[in-house]
């Protein structure tokens, strides 16, 4: 179905954003961040080369790039495979736990009153302090990292889901029932769609925490993985390689975040112009 142009034009001409400005600002929002990064890298590189700080404690982009090449020629891909497995499995388990409990808390008042304080408390606690205990329980392998990811990220998803279910517009629920929707259709046509943005928000928070979980878990006790590699390089003052490892994590974090934005746009096309991001 094509959108009748005259109608959308009418809307935008009376709306807040004028069409021409929106094209320019779109280009701006695309290129300005890239420009900022390039400038920062350049200044950093020049400072690094001219001032000549101790290479044990300091590095600059071109050295970090060689560090990256050395990593890439060596353990990087195996490390990423292990860390990635920990991340993905941990996230999947978190989602599988968070969805039923989140919906239960959102739909049952009693469950909400009984469990919400505990879950909020756990969410606010820096549960990372439990990491050493989890290593004792689950060993040095990937199981302990998966466990750390799960305790870190489950609650972000759960809390947002609950919030989303509870925020479902009662007017829409009433309308759906009035037009004859049964229990399942109320879920499918009203509750699920209105929860999607909350779910994606929960996922975004969870992804950040899960990455911390993986890296710190490997940092504490592991024999492989990107976090282990960073720690090993830091120990021997291989600063360029160490910072290259950090850079890899930064890039991965950005990629995952962008993928999630894409996912939200796919899952919730009706918000395309609403949220803008």
């Amino acid at each position: 179905m094509t959108t009748p142009m005259h109608i959308s034009e009418e809307r935008s001409s009376t709306g807040l954003r004028a069409p021409r400005e929106s094209w320019i600002s779109k280009q701006r929002s695309r290129w300005l961040p890239v420009a900022t990064v390039i400038v920062i890298l350049l200044v950093w590189e020049i400072l690094g080369r001219t001032i000549g700080w101790n290479p044990l404690f300091f590095s600059y982009p071109s050295q970090i790039w060689s560090g990256f090449l050395s990593l890439a020629a060596g353990p990087l891909w195996n490390d990423l495979a292990v860390s990635g497995t920990e991340f993905v499995l941990g996230m999947l388990i978190s989602i599988a736990l968070a969805i039923p409990v989140g919906f239960l808390l959102g739909t049952r008042r009693n469950a909400y009153f009984a469990l919400d304080p505990i879950i909020s408390a756990l969410y606010a606690t820096p549960v990372l302090v439990l990491a050493p205990l989890l290593v004792i329980w689950f060993g040095l392998g990937i199981q302990s990292k998966i466990a750390i990811v799960v305790i870190l990220s489950t609650f972000s998803i759960m809390i947002n889901l609950t919030e989303g279910v509870r925020a479902t517009d009662v007017g829409l629920l009433r309308a759906a029932r009035s037009f004859g929707a049964g229990r399942w259709r109320v879920y499918r046509d009203v509750i699920f769609p209105s929860v999607i943005p909350y779910f994606v928000t929960g996922l975004r928070l969870a992804v950040g925490r899960a990455m911390i979980g993986v890296v710190v878990g490997e940092y504490i006790a592991s024999t492989v993985g990107i976090g282990f590699q960073i720690e090993a390089d830091a120990q021997v003052f291989a600063t360029p390689r160490y910072l290259a490892g950090v850079a890899v994590i930064v890039v991965l974090a950005v990629i995952v975040t962008e993928l999630l934005k894409l996912l939200e746009r796919k899952l919730a096309p009706w918000r395309r112009l609403d949220g803008q991001d």
Binding site: M1, D169, G171, L172, R174, A175, A176, R177, S178, F179, G180, A181, G182, R185, D189, V190, P193, S194, A268, W270, R271
Partner: peptide
């Protein structure tokens, strides 16, 4: 619940995630 009644709401109560055509079809679908 029967097919005898339909409501028009003050605040419209349209499903934001459904297109105009899908919204109009809502009661028929159910």
């Amino acid at each position: 619940r029967d097919d005898s009644r339909a409501v028009v709401y003050q605040d419209f109560a349209l499903m934001p995630w459904k297109t105009v055509a899908e919204n109009v079809r809502l009661g028929l679908d159910y």
